[in-house]
């Protein structure tokens, strides 16, 4: 049981990272689709932050990528979707 807990703790970081790595692109795609045709400040900022998230993901900094895609989605929500 203790050994299982240790192994789980050690792999949790990389497992979470992989999950985030998969979801950043999907979330960015969904967000971009939602913002299609929207050229407001918040929409542009959402896209820019999603680009940063993708760049960080490419450098395998998945936690930061997630942080930026979270911010991007917040801005997308302020932008009000497609126009």
């Amino acid at each position: 049981m203790k050994l299982f807990t240790l192994i789980l703790a050690l792999v949790s970081c990389s497992w979470t990272a992989n999950a985030a790595l998969l979801s950043v692109d999907e979330r960015a795609d969904a967000m971009n689709a939602q913002l299609q045709g929207n050229n407001s400040y918040h929409a542009h900022l959402a896209r820019q932050l999603a680009d940063v998230a993708s760049a960080e993901k490419a450098q395998h900094d998945t936690a930061v990528a997630k942080q930026f895609i979270d911010m991007a989605e917040e801005e997308a929500a302020k932008a009000g979707g497609a126009q």
């Binding site: 407001s40 400040y41 929409a43 940063v52 911010m71």
Partner: peptide, 22 residues
């Protein structure tokens, strides 16, 4: 008035600021 009148450039500036902060 950049958020309204130059939204893309202003968004790029703000995103760069956040990225630099990181």
């Amino acid at each position: 008035g950049a958020e309204k009148c130059a939204p893309k450039l202003q968004a790029e500036a703000v995103a760069s600021l956040y990225w630099a902060a990181h």
